[in-house]
Design a protein around this nucleic acid. Structure first.
Lengths: 264, 264
DNA sequence: TAGTGGTCTAGACCACTTA
DNA sequence: AAGTGGTCTAGACCACTAG
């Protein structure tokens, strides 16, 4: 649509942004930003066709790969869809494509004033549920860890974790180190863990949780469950965080980011 | 580490996977899978250096761009980090990189058996809070919508939304169409909405919410707040979903996906 | 048949790191 | 100085879509 506009086709110099090759930003990045801005300002609306690769090459004097790379960025960001043989089109805002990260949780844990207090570390026989999650026989000895996370001396999260106890696998210590939480988020150098499954649910505080978190019973809280696997695809650790609901909020954006030109 | 292994350096034929050019999967994709599998099996461990681009070119007989593209995929997936002048290295599993999609929410709403029931649609003067969120004067007339989402006739979510009412801007109807929720997730063709901000919190059901959702007062629930903006960067709609906690769970995986070779 | 995106080639130069 | 990733060039062929 916008590409059929005579102004655009005639390419009136001063109106058209250019690629500045002396800039710090590489050309593919500048071009991606130009297109992103056109989408953001509504110059290109959902459903409109974006200029084809060849057109972009001519218009901005870049090589095909550079134009393509810019389009790929928008594609990855979910701002456009590409249809072979037809063209590239601006996507309407789709809620389902939004995603949020654990950044909010990480901040909660990695802040300057955050402290981890071990409440208990002991071995115990696996209950039915634990044996199921860790794929070990019932009554196998496992390690149970309870931690409290405090920020500015105020409790924000309660962590329970069950770790496989296998003298043949010297995982325990490593695991203990990793799950001391500093490393969990930042990536603690060498790790025996290959993969983790995470789930976020809501819950209300039980009596025990309420007492530890110094919040009323029945308060809203997040429950972040995690299962970690080693390189043999064996579960190594299962546990969950109970985070006070008033301390955590996950954010996401869908559509075009407003001012910032944040790369991936 | 693994790349210093003589076996690998000597490149014993049968052990080394090859790129099959007759396959449906393009070479860059095959190569990415080969490397991903090496990471998954532990052949390449966190901290290990991945073969350099040139090495990959020689070893698998592909062009630099193809090797690079495979590495870029792993880079985007967060499996490796690249350091100019040093090499590409396998990243340890990092929790902070986990990303949760709103697919779970979408499924909840877009299922076959999902029904939207309007509870009320009316105009009202903006309260202080509404005026703040929608950036309109207090007591400006706005539209208030209350909806109930039912899945298999069972209520799963309660939706409240406040929409700007401006006769000059024919947004209302379009907005009404969009926010009838079918379109919100799927992307309803042409849209006046440019951007949306989302926030996810936990809460417990109030008396009203509990009644509508047919769940006990004080049950755990998600609160998904949303603000939508038009192409003038003006807020157009503010509202939130209250979703029964037992109907929704966000999932994510961090590290290497186990068996599937899922592309982006 | 012409245009499009998807993929690929076979190089190149640069900035950076390491030795 | 050698090796690395980051970027870019100037093409190419293919499968697909649309007129």
């Amino acid at each position: 649509m916008a590409s059929k506009d005579p102004q655009v086709l005639l390419r009136k110099g001063p109106l058209e942004p250019r690629i500045d090759r002396d800039l710090f930003e590489p050309p593919y990045y500048q071009l991606a930003n130009i297109l992103r801005r056109q989408i953001a300002t509504g110059e290109l609306r959902p459903g409109d066709r974006v200029a084809s690769e060849v057109q972009l090459c001519e218009r901005y004097a870049v090589s095909p790969m550079t134009a393509r790379r810019a389009l790929t960025i928008l594609l990855d960001e979910g701002l456009v869809t590409a249809a072979r043989g037809r063209g590239t089109f601006v996507k309407p805002m789709v809620l389902g494509t939004a995603s949020f990260g654990l950044g909010a949780l990480e901040e909660l844990f990695n802040g300057e004033h955050t402290l981890v207090r071990f409440l208990s570390v002991k071995t115990m026989p696996a209950t039915a549920r634990i044996s199921q999650r860790l794929e070990v026989p019932v009554d196998d000895r496992i390690i149970a860890i309870r931690r409290l996370l405090l920020r500015d001396a105020a409790p924000v999260a309660y962590h329970r974790e069950y770790v496989i106890f296998d003298p043949a696998r010297p995982i325990i210590e490593a695991e203990m180190g990793i799950t001391s939480l500093q490393g969990l988020f930042q990536g603690s150098g060498e790790t025996v863990l290959k993969r983790g499954d995470l789930g976020i649910q809501t819950t209300v505080l039980t009596e025990e949780e309420a007492r530890l978190l110094e919040a009323p019973i029945g308060s809203a809280a997040f429950r972040v469950e995690h299962t970690f696997f080693d390189f043999d695809e064996q579960p190594v650790s299962w546990g969950w965080f109970i985070v006070r609901g008033d301390c955590l909020r996950f954010n996401a954006t869908v559509g075009v980011q407003s001012p910032a030109a944040s790369g991936r």
